[in-house]
Each structure stands twice: as structure tokens, then as C-alpha cells.
């Protein structure tokens, strides 16, 4: 099955490109653009080097926000997961904040932090924080109490149980939270940039839109697609390397 699929996929992709090009010829390139034009635009950007600063900005915002969000989310998730009192008190507030579509926080953050990278980092961190928080809490909940009991009878002190059973047990959930958060991180960074920024792919996108430069829009979307795929693949690789002990389902 796998061997026969690839040629079909390539043929299909090629067919789409041809169809796109044909539509451009038929209906005019003003709205539809064409593969040739987009390729040309991209080539121009890549050789002139202007686009790299934008890409780096978006990636930096994403990665920084991710790191902050994951660390804080995991820490708070562990805390809330372990202390029932704290969890009960804070849960409604956490859910209330999470119910707001987080991207709508962007204008507020832009007002507070300005239009450089910081508000976008905060936005990314916030989105990631909540995702990782809930997953971590679930992970704590899912730890097998029998395992903890066995360790107690072996003579483990609380911090030993924590380090040897709770944390590794939660890792699965934290990582799955990170994997889910990755595409959201990209979205948050890009949307933040679209609203206001000095640099970034979102800025290029919104500027191109204002200039009605359809070709440029497609070019940016292509870059974002590649970025998104790289991010998703990184997430998958990270998970499989850290969770090598999981049996591969045959």
C-alpha cells in the first residue's frame, strides 16, 4: 500500500499546480496568482535576505513563548494536580480565563507591552501555559496510586516518590500538551504580528494584504506552511525520543 501511494501523491500535487497555473491564465493573475509568480517572489526574497529577519522574529517569539509557557504550565499543573485545595480554589478562575479566546488578548497585550516581540511572546506563553497546565493536571491525576503505595512500603520518602513516580508519569501528558501547543504557538505569534509589529511573518502577511499583493500572500503562506510542518515534526521527534519506552503498536 505504501509503495504505490507516493507516485499518486506526486501526480496529484503536480496536477493541482497545473490547475492553479491554468486558472491564472484563464481568470487573470490579479486574484489567483500562479505558481510561477509565487516561486519568483520567494526566490527574490530568499536571495535579497529581507525575509530572514521576519522568519527569525516569528520563530524566536514562538520558541521563547513555548519555553516560558511549558515551564510555567508544568509547574503550576503539578502544583494544582497535587493539592486538592489549591486546585478547587483556583479551578473556576483558570477555566474562566481559558474560556476567553486567547488570541483576543492580543490588543491588550500590545497596549501593555508595546509592539515589539514581547507582547507576542507573552501571548504565545499564555496559550501554551493553559494547554500544558490542563494536561499536566490530568497527568498527575492519572498516576497509579498502587505504584505510589508500593514505593511507600519500600520506604520511599515523599520527594522520592515525586521524582521517581509522579514526574516521569506526568511526562507523557506534559509532552502531549506540548505537541498540541506547538501549532497554537505559531498561530499566536503570527496573529499578534498581524495586529502590530515591527518585524515578523504576520506583519509581512498583513502588509501584503493591504497592498493587494496576492503573490506575496501566497509566498508567506507557503513559508508558514513549511514552518508549521517543521514544528509539528519536531514535536513528534521529541515525543518519540523521550518516550522510547512506549511500545510501538504493531
Amino acid at each position: 500500500m505504501q509503495r504505490s501511494a507516493l507516485p499518486w501523491q506526486i501526480a496529484f500535487g503536480a496536477g493541482l499546480l497545473v490547475a492553479w497555473y491554468a486558472c491564472g491564465l484563464l481568470f487573470g493573475v490579479a486574484w489567483i496568482s500562479s505558481p510561477a509568480l509565487v516561486a519568483g517572489k520567494l526566490a527574490g526574497w530568499l536571495s535579497s535576505g529581507a525575509i530572514y529577519a521576519h522568519i527569525m522574529t516569528t520563530v524566536t517569539e514562538m520558541v521563547t513563548g513555548l519555553l516560558v509557557g511549558v515551564v510555567l504550565g508544568a509547574m503550576c499543573g503539578l502544583l494544582l494536580g497535587m493539592s486538592r485545595l489549591v486546585a478547587t480554589v483556583l479551578r473556576p478562575i483558570v477555566f474562566a480565563v481559558y474560556s476567553v479566546p486567547l488570541v483576543s488578548l492580543a490588543p491588550l497585550l500590545l497596549m501593555i507591552f508595546g509592539i515589539d516581540m514581547l507582547p507576542k511572546i507573552v501571548l504565545v506563553a499564555t496559550v501554551v501555559f493553559f494547554l500544558v497546565l490542563f494536561n499536566t493536571m490530568k497527568g498527575v491525576e492519572m498516576v497509579d496510586p498502587d505504584m505510589v503505595d508500593v514505593l511507600k512500603v519500600m520506604g520511599a520518602q515523599w520527594h522520592e516518590s515525586f521524582r521517581k513516580v509522579l514526574l516521569p508519569g506526568c511526562m507523557v501528558w506534559i509532552l502531549s500538551g506540548v505537541k498540541v501547543a506547538l501549532p497554537f504557538a505559531l498561530v499566536a505569534a503570527t496573529v499578534g504580528e498581524m495586529m502590530a509589529a515591527r518585524r515578523g511573518l504576520g506583519l509581512v502577511l498583513s502588509e501584503s494584504g493591504q497592498k493587494f499583493d496576492v503573490t506575496a500572500i501566497y509566498a508567506v503562506l507557503l513559508i508558514l506552511t513549511v514552518l508549521g510542518l517543521v514544528v509539528a515534526e519536531t514535536g513528534a521527534r521529541l515525543e518519540s525520543s523521550l518516550l522510547r519506552w512506549r511500545r510501538k503498536s504493531d
Binding site: 503505595d149 508500593v150 512500603v153 519500600m154 519506552w245
Partner: peptide
Amino acid sequence: PNVRVGYMTQKDTLLPWR
């Protein structure tokens, strides 16, 4: 918790990541 005993549970409760 009585640390002078060994306890073998019904499920094997091995740590799956070790």
C-alpha cells in the same frame, strides 16, 4: 507504611519508563 515488608500487588505496577 511498614518498610519491613515487601508488597506484591495484583497488577504488577512496574514503572513503564524504566
